[in-house]
Computed example of a mutant assay.
Amino acid sequence: MTDGTPSANRAVLAAMPVVVMAVVALMDLVTEPGVGFLPLVSLGPAFASLVGGWRRTAVIGLVALVLCVGLGVYDRLFEERRGFAAMASVAGVTGVGIAAALMRSRREEQLASMRSIAEVAQRVLLRPVPRTAGPLRVAVSYTSAVAEARIGGDLYEVVASPYGVRVIVGDVQGKGLAAVETAAVVLGAFREAAHDEPDLVGLGERLERSVARELEGEKFVTGILAEIGARPEIVFLNYGHPAPMVVRGDGTVRFPEPPAYALPLGLGAHGGERPKPYRVDFAPGDQVLLYTDGVTEARDGDGRFYPVGERAPLLKDPDADRALEALRADLARHADGPPHDDAAMLLLRYHGHGDGKSVPSG
């Protein structure tokens, strides 16, 4: 029995042509010549074309043809047409298998090329966040809902600006390439405005204008902005996004809500409350988890949402990356099957401005 891993499955498929031809040869030898097992030798090159290249398929096909001739002579099938029909079957299947192997190789090369392009796009769009920024230690986790995808509609960034460390976590409405394009617009605007705008409200207004120019109809982006300066506090600006989770050094958990709920980015033209900044104490030993709704809306087999607040003890590990990985692994265990939405998490740990009260971290 295999262990179920792709490498084990591939090894089984790689051995299958030899096993099949050996079984067919054995059955042909122990049964009467008239039973008609000989054409089944063509299963060898057929299986070879599933995982091997065209050269391996051709070699297996040649071995199958030699085996077919040997068994045909042994069974005296060349005294009638059955031996030649079996050879034609093996040759035909081998030819088709070689063609299939060539086509699969080309597709694999194209997929490898697309994967490398996606990795470059990921590095440009979702660049690795700095492990330290000002008074912060930072860790990030991103899980895409699309199989094999590296990027999606969730976004995050950390920028050390002249006005303090500025952070964004957001969630674009929708999925697919359109969501990725919108995420690129938001991140590009944030990276530029974070260095130019002296206050967080001005930064948010720049983002609103950029998103409004790019989005059409009722599309929008929920997001939360955060700023950490010289004082032991964090300033939030919330655009319809889930409240951050603040974990104090003593283990207590809070989800500070904004004084007024604002519309997501892109919907500012529809009126409603403008976002108001609100401040939360953020001292050495404290942690803040920013996340998207792919985290809190993940359901288990009974339909229960992920209780992120109850899982705060998982963030006790001194290494920020290991702590966030423990939370991500717990989220994956909680979810019933593959994720239905992208899930981004950004962990901020306050370790002070060189005051010797730092929280150990990776």
Rank of each mutant, 00 (worst) to 15 (best):
P242T: 10
F255D: 08
P232G: 11
G217W: 03
P256Y: 00
I224Q: 01
R254T: 12
A226D: 00
E214H: 15
V235C: 07
R231A: 15
F236E: 05
T222M: 03
H241L: 02
N238C: 08
V247H: 03
A262R: 04
G240M: 06
R231F: 09
E208N: 10
Y239H: 13
Y261C: 08
R206H: 10
E214Q: 13
Y239R: 10
L237D: 00
G251F: 06
E218Q: 12
P244G: 05
L263Q: 06
A230S: 15
R248A: 00
A226I: 06
V247N: 02
Y261P: 09
V221Y: 04
A230G: 14
D250S: 05
P242D: 10
R248D: 00
E214V: 07
A260Q: 13
S210T: 11
R206A: 10
L207P: 01
T252P: 09
A230E: 15
L225V: 08
Y261N: 10
V247C: 07
L225N: 03
V247S: 02
Y239C: 08
K219H: 14
A260H: 12
E257G: 09
E208M: 12
E233C: 09
G223A: 15
L225Y: 03
L237V: 01
Y239L: 07
I224L: 14
A212Q: 15
E218H: 08
E233M: 06
E218K: 00
M245E: 09
A226P: 06
E257Q: 13
T222W: 06
A243S: 12
P232H: 12
A243I: 07
I224F: 03
I228S: 01
E208K: 05
G229D: 04
P259F: 01
G229I: 00
V247I: 15
F236T: 00
P242M: 04
S210C: 09
L263W: 02
T252G: 13
R206V: 13
V246T: 08
S210L: 00
I224K: 04
F255L: 14
G249R: 14
A230V: 14
V221I: 10
S210H: 04
L263D: 03
L207D: 07
I224V: 15
T252M: 12
R248P: 03
A243C: 11
H241G: 01
E214T: 13
